[in-house]
């Protein structure tokens, strides 16, 4: 839309659950064609931030600009149709649908609403891209956990999104799978998508993210170039379980 604006711009985003401030005045930006890492120890509010950005939760305060347009408070399905796709920390695929149907469901309701033979052809393409070409007719419930994660990614890509939100998509992979996963995410970025990824796997963060934002207890405690952020003393302290940030 507005090609000078960043793909995603978040300002002062906040959300409490009861007395708990899960996300507290979060600011972040994802530039076009950039991969930004969202880091932080367990319970620091990363998934909640993803839910606020993607419309799964309504923020108490703050602004979310997607492709130059304010979108905070819009329902998730509208954001999806505008081109924001996501994966889930605990993989979510409708188990009774075949892999092909899963991906078709990503095509059918997205920005272009592709259906019929065209959808089947494209869906096969997306399955091939994540390495599931031979699983098209297998029910998603019969896949291994890793393959379900791949399928979830294929479904997200089927939306032909501008922005992809990945919540620990690389977690739980073995070393070979991790290298494949990193290559795949990089390839997706190179095809023109912007990506915000929550991740704990340091190798993946170093390999993929140009910049990182680190949260702790709902707050941003550091952000900037990946190498600098990872060397920041507050970040090290937070990850080692200390509450050293003042």
């Amino acid at each position: 839309m507005n090609s000078s604006a960043p793909m995603l711009r978040v300002r002062g985003l906040s959300r409490s659950f009861g007395g708990l401030r899960a996300v507290d005045r979060l600011d972040l930006e994802v530039g076009r064609g950039e991969i930004v890492g969202l880091l932080g120890p367990n319970g620091s509010g990363k998934t909640t931030a993803m839910n606020l950005i993607s419309g799964a939760l309504v923020p108490d305060a703050g602004v979310v600009e997607f492709d130059g347009e304010p979108v905070q408070g819009l329902p998730a399905f509208k954001l999806a149709r505008k081109g924001m796709a996501r994966s889930f920390q605990l993989v979510r695929v409708p188990c009774e649908l075949s892999c092909l149907e899963n991906v078709i469901s990503g095509l059918a309701f997205g920005p272009r609403g592709i259906w019929g033979e065209a959808a089947r052809t494209r869906a096969r393409g997306h399955l091939a891209r994540v390495g599931l070409a031979d699983k098209a007719d297998v029910p998603a419930g019969e896949l291994t956990y890793i393959d379900q994660k791949r399928l979830e990614l294929a479904r997200a890509l089927a939306l032909q999104p501008k922005l992809l939100l990945l919540d620990e998509w690389l977690a739980g992979l073995n070393p070979t799978e991790l290298q494949e996963g990193i290559a795949l995410v990089r390839e997706i970025r190179d095809s023109g998508l912007s990506i915000l990824m929550v991740e704990h796997v340091m190798d993946a963060i170093r390999a993929l993210c140009t910049r990182c934002v680190v949260m702790s207890a709902g707050w941003v405690i550091a952000q900037g170039q990946t190498a600098e952020v990872l060397a920041h003393p507050d970040v090290l302290a937070a990850y080692l379980g200390g509450a050293a940030h003042a």
Binding site: S54, G55, A56, P75, A76, F77, A80, R81, A85, R86, F88, R92, V93, P94, C95, E96, L97, E101, I104, S105, G106, A108, F109, G110, P111, G113, W115, R155, A158, L159
Partner: peptide, 24 residues
């Protein structure tokens, strides 16, 4: 129809349905 597929996704997981653009 497309509505039928939407319903199957909704029946299994509404959260997924919303995030792929289905007006649940």
């Amino acid at each position: 129809s497309r509505l039928g597929l939407a319903l199957r996704v909704i029946g299994e997981d509404e959260m997924v349905a919303r995030h792929i653009g289905i007006d649940v």
